[in-house]
Design a binder for these strands. Structure first.
Length: 513
RNA sequence: GCUCCCAUCGUCUAGCGGUCUAGGACGUGGCCCUCUCAAGGCCAAAACACGGGUUCGAUUCCCGUUGGGAGCACCA
């Protein structure tokens, strides 16, 4: 039954409802019988190394990765480095690092399109030999002129086929090679996300597959590579929707099995248009440097265009266990930075303090200096501080800012002038000294005991409010008017450092005027 | 212009003919909590683009309109 379905439909796949099931079957171009036993799913992510990993690309990679892992397939990474100008080892590394940082892995060895030139050239020769492609001596200028005339008719321009029957040989001078694309029939496929898709073959035209300098074009290279790598499912951005018919024609001309296609809706910017490098933050690297966790970025990206009931937060493990193309949307989605903030904080609240401490390290160093960050890193109070800070930090950068007071040496702590002016009232000096004495007398250095010392001090001083005392201490110990609960803060800072800071504040206390 | 695609609160979405006086989340506003900042709790405002069908019955199916997006290379 399966075999029959694949034998009759050029690009089978069944309805959307059956898509996931069909996904386990071999590519639709396979002959009947060949499909009798399920074959391994093979997918790939094929970024061009532009110097950074784009969030759109990261999401495509994530969908590929998650779906493939879920189905026990093989996920490959292929660098599309045909554009020599932009392709450097550094920009390739940026893409690879980005993927690793997000938590993705891939199988077999990383491959590069540039390594496959021979394959592309051979494929073109074969097409030529079989007369499925032909040499074309039309120059860009000539075509441009003809195209301009054509535009008046209002139809979509396709190559007019002037050289199609000319039979130009290898020695015809500068020439391109064009694929013969049928002028009748349809180039259709069953998209795993978009459902029945395709268009009339005649609207495609005989497209160039080899430049006059002998280099192959993108479409030829991708198809040949995908065939060679035995890719069974092509999962990519919806910007390739329009490219698929021509690529279908290439698969046919190559007598190659046709993979299944799944196109993902694009991520758009705040104005609903394609993400722009100028307006929007598009690189994964940017978010990493701004203090977002990989878990947060993955959750954010996976939820644009896909959902699983009302669940908002997904670990990588959940993503790979739950992701399905069937539940993937068809409409483009906005990437909302505020939602990312919330997601990031949610992860900050969930992750173990040890993990956050490690992630925080570079941010702390940036907010203070290497020495201070190292000192904080080995301070036993750090994990406790992180537990206090996770409720008030949307990013690691923010957390590091709030942790500055802790990392800084006692003598280097600076006081916020406005906070001093507001909270260091001359009359508070005596109670503060009393509080210091109460703290010194403490046997246990923990929030409850510290609170008791505060209460005792308050009881000694008629009319003194809890707020003013807490604020005075807060400024003395953190330099700022905002911090986690004062008892917890002192507990985490430690007895010695607290007392040193109190002493230092007392010494700097303003006198009554 | 042509081709292809899309359409539920501002945003991400649930909904796969009756369960919808349309649910959740972010954001926004209010209240509570409170030593500051947060976090948290409660409440509120906020959407099925429009018009035709199909049907006993449409947010859900079909067709138009409108709006939006993507693609129309000897780029990838």
């Amino acid at each position: 039954m399966r075999a029959a379905a694949f034998g009759t439909i050029p690009s089978a796949g069944g309805s959307r409802g059956l898509a996931e099931k069909g996904a386990l079957l071999p590519p639709s171009g396979a002959r009947p019988g060949y499909s009798a036993r399920p074959m391994t799913i093979r997918t790939r992510f094929a970024p061009s190394p532009t110097g950074f990993l784009h969030i759109g690309g990261a999401r495509t990679a994530l969908y590929n990765w998650a779906w493939t892992r879920r189905h026990g397939g093989v996920f490959l990474l292929r660098i599309e480095d045909t554009d020599r100008a932009r392709s450097t080892a550094a920009s390739e590394a940026a893409v690879v690092d980005g993927l690793r940082w997000l938590g993705m892995d891939w199988d077999e060895r990383l491959s590069r399109q540039s390594e496959r030139g021979d394959l592309h050239r051979a494929a073109i020769e074969t097409l030529l030999a079989r007369d499925r492609a032909y040499r074309c001596v039309c120059t860009p200028d000539e075509i441009g002129a003809r195209k301009q005339q054509f535009v008046a008719t209002g139809a979509k321009w396709t190559y007019d086929g002037r050289c199609a029957e000319a039979n130009h040989g290898p020695a015809c001078g500068p020439h391109t090679v064009r694929l013969r694309v049928s002028k009748t029939g349809r180039l259709d496929w069953q998209d795993l996300v978009f459902g029945p898709s395709g268009q009339d073959a005649r609207e495609i035209g005989d497209m160039v597959i080899r430049r006059s300098d002998g280099s192959p074009l993108y479409h030829l290279a991708v198809v040949v590579d995908d065939v060679d790598m035995r890719i069974t499912h092509v999962i990519r951005g919806a910007d390739h929707l329009n490219n698929t018919p021509f690529q279908l024609a290439l698969y046919r001309a190559l007598d190659a099995p046709i993979p299944q296609f799944a196109h993902l809706p694009l991520i758009v910017g705040a104005d609903g248009r394609k993400l722009s490098k100028r307006r929007d933050h598009v690189s994964v690297q940017h978010f990493r440097e701004a203090g977002y966790l990989p878990e947060a970025l993955c959750t954010w990206l996976v939820r644009i265009g896909w959902s699983h009931g009302d669940q908002e937060i997904f670990s990588l493990a959940e993503i790979r266990a739950l992701f399905s193309l069937e539940a993937t949307h068809r409409s483009p989605g906005h990437a909302d930075p505020q939602k990312l903030d919330w997601i990031n904080q949610t992860w900050i609240k969930r992750l173990p303090a040890e993990r956050l401490a490690a992630e925080l390290q570079p941010f702390l160093a940036a907010a203070t200096d290497a020495d201070a960050a190292a000192a904080a890193g080995s301070d036993p109070g750090l994990l406790g501080l992180i537990d206090l800070l996770r409720e008030r930090s949307k990013t690691l950068a923010e957390m590091s800012e709030r942790a500055r007071f802790f990392a800084l040496p006692d003598a280097a702590l600076a006081y916020d002038p406005k906070a001093v002016q507001k909270h260091w009232k001359p009359a508070l000096r005596t109670p503060l000294a009393a509080l210091r004495d109460a703290l010194v007398a403490l046997t246990a250095w923990e929030p409850a005991a510290i609170e008791a010392a505060f209460e005792a001090t308050l009881a000694q001083h008629e009319g003194l409010g809890r707020g003013p005392l807490a604020q005075a201490v807060r400024v003395a110990v953190t330099g700022s008017a905002a911090s986690p609960g004062i008892y917890e803060t002192l507990a985490v800072l430690g007895r010695e450092r607290t007392l040193v800071r109190l002493e230092r504040a007392l010494a700097a206390w303003p006198a009554a005027s």
